Simulated scan of single mutants.
Amino acid sequence: MKTLYIVRHAKSSWDYNGIEDIDRPLKKRGIKDSHLMSKFLSKEIAKPDVFISSSANRALHTSVIFCENFEYPLSNLKIRRQLYSFSDGYLVKTVKALDDGFSSAIIFSHDHGINTFVNKFGNTPIAHVPTCGIIGIQFEEKHWKNIKKGKTIMTESPKNHK
């Protein structure tokens, strides 16, 4: 069995002129929500075997906060530029390429790709994953490359924890 947690990056700022989208930082609310949700999740589940983040500043900052609250070594955080994509293609490739030695993984990525992925691979329709939302999906597979439709085991958002 394989378990995947997907986290949409926390609320980011649009207040900076002249910076690329990939460099946008988290807002104060995003930082608070990242701590809130990572502390919640760290009490609900066993520490995932691998943490993987998009290279975008907002996703990376979110993942660093989760690493901190899970006591997961930052040196083990995997950063994937290809996850800075707004389609599910690279997210699917990333998941299916996971080492089969990992029974669980947590991935930090972006809006549209996550929404498409969780509706394609989970069994619960989800209209929209909010910022810092967490979706958990369990797969009855031994190999990540074979995942198909799984069971949605978690849908959490910051608004449910404030």
Rank of each mutant, 00 (worst) to 15 (best):
M1H: 09
M1Y: 08
L4C: 02
I6C: 01
R8K: 07
A10W: 03
W14L: 13
Y16C: 09
N17A: 12
I22D: 11
I22H: 15
D23R: 14
K28H: 10
K28N: 14
R29M: 07
G30Q: 03
I31Y: 11
K32W: 06
S34C: 09
S34Q: 05
S34A: 15
S38F: 10
K39C: 14
A46N: 15
K47A: 02
P48H: 01
I52T: 05
S55Y: 02
R58N: 04
S63E: 05
V64N: 15
V64P: 15
I65W: 12
I65A: 12
N69T: 06
N69A: 07
Y72F: 15
N76E: 15
Q82I: 14
Q82F: 12
L83V: 10
F86Y: 14
S87N: 15
G89S: 12
Y90Q: 09
L91V: 02
L91I: 03
L91F: 03
T94S: 07
T94P: 00
V95S: 02
D99K: 14
G101H: 10
F102R: 12
S103M: 08
S103T: 10
A105Y: 01
S109I: 00
H112D: 15
H112K: 14
T116S: 10
K120E: 14
K120L: 14
N123E: 12
N123Y: 07
H128G: 09
V129K: 00
V129S: 00
T131C: 12
T131A: 11
G133F: 07
I137R: 05
Q138P: 02
F139H: 04
F139L: 03
E140W: 05
E140V: 03
K142Y: 05
H143E: 09
H143C: 06
W144I: 02
I147T: 01
K148R: 09
K151I: 08
T152F: 03
I153F: 00
T155H: 01
K159W: 07
K162R: 11
